[in-house]
Design a protein around this nucleic acid. Structure first.
Lengths: 239, 239
DNA sequence: CCAAAAGTGTTGAGAGTACACCCATGC
DNA sequence: GCATGGGTGTACTCTCAACACTTTTGG
């Protein structure tokens, strides 16, 4: 990195034009669809108040301050937009096509985050912030449609579903709730019996002795996510 | 991206300090170890000719020109360092810790690449460029030890071994050669019989009618990589 | 008692592993 | 022939999907 043996001066020193760095975040929450009652993925977008793409919806984000870490900038952006804290935050990809922003060269480091479903319900929604169903977005500013598409792909092909599902839920949950999250993300029904066995075998959940009563059927046992299960391989170089 | 509803001016406009963008590449080749005869992973490093970390070895890279695509910059860097063209090139991660470069804020978009083994043999090696065994590197400049470690992890946990192995080989290859690549990357021996079946079942290789004679055993059939097999899911948002 | 979801048992198909065995070549 | 890897056959294990069945609650 920096210069190699064919030594160049810093672009700042030679005063050349250079790219500008931005950080954006794709924020997913799980909410029941207004009509179908099924849990689906939603994400908040902000309306552009200036050119380019004035009036269009875009991912929350901003320029990277020189004294702020990348992940911190993503988390801050998330907080400023939704008043929420991420339960999961990971770098997605860096988009830097020359023509992705008219006129200026902008390179965007994009993160993706998961937030709690119930909490997202009462999240700040104003004139310039709105939640959209992830599968039916309007035309977005910049290359953000492509960005969201890639984030969805990553979410759905992630191996560690357990950690993702946990991010969407509370600290304790029934296996039915956990299964519902998996089904929403994977977009297919799962066999309750087999799901139970595979979860218990994976060791990513711990059974408690508590149960939830009140429904007109056998009470479901509550489970807790096992933090130690995340100690497998580094999905992020840092960890 | 860019500014959101809490509108900020561009950092350029307000003249604030901002991070500088660099692109680096981890370049892997497969070469027989000098002693053990076994195929192992090697990568080229360049010696720093200026501060910081003067004299230490570092990944090839450079500042990002405002008019060059990220992947192009990575490929150019690779060519300038090794006189080689990448057979595989993919974005790895973006490293941006505040303190990773003393004094200045540098954000590095890192790519990883694979090059042909035989070709890497006669690759340019000078005073300031040298190939190292990937598993026993010296102390590198910046956070490059961590970067290489992450690149190795990504290489070894990639699902599409077929495409990776193909990048290391020529257009046609025997299953023994293909197996040797897999064994080197995965660092474990594979059963020849089972390997053959799993490869043929995967559909990622196509059998030709050519054979290689000359060895004092039954001639091995040559195979060809099936490009169509890569049409599964987008590992890169672009493709 | 009945409906509904929690939870258990059983079976079969397919993938992966271990390993015995045959085939074709150079020497 | 014999050594050496190329290539085939086969049996065993393990995971996972399918689905019948039992359990426990509310009404």
């Amino acid at each position: 990195m920096l210069d190699h043996h064919l030594t160049e001066q810093s672009p700042l020193e030679r005063g050349s034009t250079q790219a500008t760095l931005a950080v954006s975040t794709v924020i997913f929450a799980l909410r029941p669809d207004d009509e179908s009652r099924l849990m689906t993925l939603w994400l908040p977008l902000v309306r552009r108040t200036r050119d380019p793409f004035l009036g269009l919806w875009a991912l929350p984000g901003g320029w990277l301050p020189a004294d702020e870490e990348l992940a911190s900038a993503a988390a801050r952006t998330l907080r400023e937009t939704t008043d929420l804290s991420p339960r999961y935050l990971e770098q997605l990809y860096t988009f830097g096509d020359i023509d992705r922003s008219p006129g200026v060269r902008v390179v965007s480091v994009v993160y993706w985050a998961l937030v709690r479903s119930e909490v997202a319900e009462r999240a700040s929604v104003g004139e310039n912030v709105r939640w959209f169903a992830a599968d039916s977005l309007p035309l977005l500013a910049f290359d953000h449609n492509r960005v969201v598409e890639y984030a969805l792909w990553r979410l759905r092909t992630k191996v560690e579903y357990a950690r993702i599902a946990h991010a969407f839920l509370g600290d304790t949950f029934t296996l039915a709730q956990l299964r519902e999250v998996h089904e929403a993300v994977l977009q297919k029904a799962l066999d309750p019996a087999n799901f139970r066995r595979s979860m218990e075998a994976s060791g990513s959940v711990i059974s408690t002795n508590q149960h939830v009563a009140g429904a007109r059927h056998r009470p479901a046992r509550l489970y807790r996510y096992d933090e130690r299960a995340a100690e497998h391989d580094p999905p992020e170089p840092t960890l």
